[in-house]
């Protein structure tokens, strides 16, 4: 394990150090005093584990292919942007546009997430990206979602708090959303419908929920107290009939 103290360091220098270490074959890197450093793990296509103490900056793990990143703190905007593979575990909250166009890998957030999370996430062949959120999500959750799995647990919500914001699943045309609890119809985009879970869903959920419980030391019984609902798009081609040939 290599430890890098990021205090007072520019992001570019920090990321260069990380890239160098990984290419030298270092398998585990611990970054301490991280304070807003952007692009950590950006484009990282090798197996490596990065542990971050502090608050990483925007675009954490953008274009990442296979590494594992664990954040002991909050993450900011754009985490897992266009990520293709790997795992991110965030022991705090994450903010806007988490998992934008993500195509592979898994992201676990212990707490809440911001706006536009999982926007345009897509699955492809055996790539099935997943985001698991422990708390609640903001508006435009899973907008344009084209594939993959999004799970929101709503743990620790106040009785009057909503699990997702407005326009959830607007333009969605693929993938599955699981929400633990209920969602008001007016919060949903008009392209999605609420359906009940099948046995297969329960199996799929099990794996992700067990991981969540293991990563964040949460008791599975706590999660199982409340049933999930499932959101699916009506159609994989929501805009198929909009045009007339000139």
């Amino acid at each position: 394990m290599q430890t890098i103290d990021a205090s007072g360091m520019l992001y570019r220098d920090l990321n260069e150090l990380i890239r160098d270490s990984v290419s030298r074959g270092v398998k585990e890197i611990r970054l301490i005093n991280v304070n807003g450093h952007r692009y950590i793990g950006d484009g990282l296509a090798k197996e490596a584990s990065i542990i971050i103490e502090g608050t990483p900056g925007n675009d954490l793990a953008a274009f990442m292919e296979g590494a594992r990143i664990e954040v002991h703190g909050n993450a900011q905007d754009g985490t897992a942007n266009t990520m293709n593979g790997g795992t991110i575990v965030i022991h705090g909250d994450a903010r806007d546009a988490l998992g934008y166009s993500m195509r592979g890998g898994e992201v676990y957030v212990r707490g809440d997430v911001g706006y536009r999370v999982g926007i345009h996430m897509k699955g492809y062949q055996d790539m099935n990206p997943a985001i698991v959120v422990g708390g609640k999500a903001g508006d435009f959750f899973a907008e344009y979602m084209a594939g993959g799995i999004m799970i929101v647990l709503g743990l620790g919500l106040a009785p009057d708090e909503d699990i997702v914001g407005n326009y959830c699943g607007t333009g969605m045309h693929g993938g599955i959303i699981y929400l633990r609890g209920e969602v008001a119809p007016e919060q949903l985009g008009k392209e999605v419908k609420v359906v009940s879970l099948t046995e297969e869903d329960t199996c799929v959920l099990d794996g992700y929920l067990d991981n969540y419980c293991q990563y964040f030391k949460v008791k599975r019984e706590e999660i199982d107290k409340k049933p999930f609902c499932k959101l699916l798009p009506y159609n994989k081609r929501p805009y198929g009939n909009m045009y007339a040939g000139w």
């Binding site: 754009g78 934008y100 084209a146």
Partner: peptide, 14 residues
């Protein structure tokens, strides 16, 4: 996936 519309949103959402 085959046969799905490839939708490019108007803005980049980031």
């Amino acid at each position: 996936p085959e046969g799905t519309d490839a939708i490019s949103p108007a803005p980049h959402h980031d």
